[in-house]
Write a protein that binds this DNA or RNA. Structure first.
Lengths: 176, 176
DNA sequence: GAAGGAGCATGATATCTATCATGATCAACT
DNA sequence: AGTTGATCATGATAGATATCATGCTCCTTC
């Protein structure tokens, strides 16, 4: 499903860029020139608050489109900082916007993409609101069918808001 | 911003319905006939799993549009059950879909609405992944500017994944 | 104004998990 | 074979919070 979106994006003029770890892809209040498709690496969207606090709004990794909302705004509303080396495809916002307004088929694909993101984010929030690691793992498995392969457990732990150790223990408990 | 969306919806043929607590607005695999705008009350979107488990995917209350993704699918992918008495506005999916495909302005309004929902859900997920009630409350306040009025604290506790008592204590701690 | 209910407040306790620590396994590379 | 690094594994401990319990303050309703 996401590949449909990606095909649309690649059909437009685009360029590749790489960013070292810790660099900004964009800053708050910057005018929106480009949309970003993350090819590899990871990016955090961060909103900094007076008082030193900062809230992570989104963690984007390979395959993610960054800051979808910026397609319809003139400036960014948060900072995008790479947490790893990032390779990204940049598409001019104007071109994408023009495509959206002139091509109902693309508009529909974009809306379907956004709907999927809404569902994923809401599901993740509901999983995170469960109280124990056991419950959160149950919910994760219910959605994904089974435990992830070894090698991906740490990622799952991050996703369900548990420490890796807590997840290892829960999985070990179920083996017995 | 949501009011823009609501005005669009009200410009289409629609009907009002009320549902008692515990009733289904729709069931999984039902053909999508209507989109629902919740006027009052609350609805849970639930996906039931073999094995008795059930995962809440979304809690919708007054002002929410239900199951936005269903605009582009032919059947629902989950159950919608009222947790309170609900008053809802129903809009024919076909009419809304036709409007989306024929009117770029509405398509843009719909996409902006979805983008906002994505941001909200992602922000909530990130808040829920914070470890302590103090941190989660900080993040909530950072986004909303200040503590909610008394009377709404229980709702905030639910939103940030804490028990009401834990939130009371954290607020009391800050008064000292 | 008496009664009932919802939300706020706070104490006590058990439970869960983050964290620190240490070690095992495995793969990639030299 | 040895080194290195990532992930998995498991023990011990302290800290945070859910839960149960009890009481208070409003506000609404009769």
């Amino acid at each position: 499903m996401i590949s449909i979106m990606i095909n649309w994006l690649r059909s437009l003029p685009h360029q590749q860029s790489t960013y070292e770890q810790g660099r900004h892809l964009f800053r708050r209040d910057d005018p929106v020139q480009n949309m970003f498709l993350i090819e590899s690496g990871a990016v955090q969207l961060i909103r900094a608050h007076r008082g030193g606090g900062a809230l992570v709004l989104q963690r984007a990794s390979a395959g993610s489109i960054l800051a979808e909302a910026s397609l319809f705004t003139t400036s960014y509303h948060c900072d995008a900082i790479t947490t790893e080396l990032v390779r990204a495809t940049l598409i001019a916002r104007r071109a994408l916007r023009k495509l959206f307004l002139s091509n109902p088929e693309f508009a529909q694909a974009w809306a379907i993409h956004l709907s999927g993101e809404v569902r994923n984010a809401r599901r993740r929030a509901e999983i995170l609101s469960l109280r124990t690691v056991a419950e959160r793992l149950d919910a994760w498995i219910a959605e994904h069918g089974r435990l992830p392969d070894k090698g991906g457990w740490r990622g799952v732990a991050l996703e369900i808001g548990a420490s890796p150790e807590a997840l290892y223990r829960e999985i070990a408990r179920r083996r017995k």
